[in-house]
Simulated assay, not measured.
Amino acid sequence: MPRQPVYEQIIADVIASIQSGALQPGDKLPSIAQLCEQYRASPTPIRFALRILDERGWIEVHQGKGSFVADEPPA
């Protein structure tokens, strides 16, 4: 089975953490640098994953402050 792209893995992991309650509304996600280290990836797929999560309503990205779990993530 081919490995899924790292950005898809990040999206799945963040959604799973929100759905399980490990990440609560308002919680700050790790920084891009921390996510790069965690997933052994460059910043490009990390930023792409965060943008998709933002567009889908799971997180809110605040320039210069970081990424946070949305107040009302999708069900």
Rank of each mutant, 00 (worst) to 15 (best):
E55T: 04
Q63G: 14
F68A: 05
L50C: 08
L53I: 07
L35V: 10
L50A: 08
F48Q: 11
A33F: 13
L50G: 00
E37W: 13
F68P: 02
E60I: 07
R51F: 03
A70T: 04
E55M: 13
A41G: 09
G66Y: 10
L53P: 01
F68M: 05
S67A: 15
E60D: 11
F68S: 06
R40W: 04
Q38P: 03
W58S: 01
R51A: 07
D54R: 02
G57R: 03
Y39W: 10
L50F: 07
Q38T: 11
F48G: 07
G66S: 12
E60V: 10
G64P: 05
E72A: 15
I59E: 00
Q38W: 11
R56W: 05
S42T: 07
I52N: 04
D54C: 05
A70M: 08
I59C: 00
E55I: 01
Y39L: 09
S42Q: 12
E55Q: 10
E72K: 14
P45S: 06
A70W: 02
I46M: 00
I46N: 00
K65F: 12
D71Q: 13
D54H: 08
G64W: 10
W58L: 03
I52V: 13
H62W: 06
I52Y: 02
A49T: 08
V69T: 02
R51G: 05
K65Q: 15
V61L: 07
F48E: 12
L50S: 04
R56M: 11
A49D: 02
C36V: 14
R47H: 13
E55V: 04
R51C: 06
T44C: 12
V61F: 03
R47T: 09
Q38Y: 09
R40F: 02
P45T: 09
V61E: 05
A41D: 01
Y39C: 06
R56T: 12
R47D: 09
P45A: 08
F48S: 11
H62E: 11
G64T: 04
I46Q: 00
E60M: 07
G64N: 10
Y39H: 07
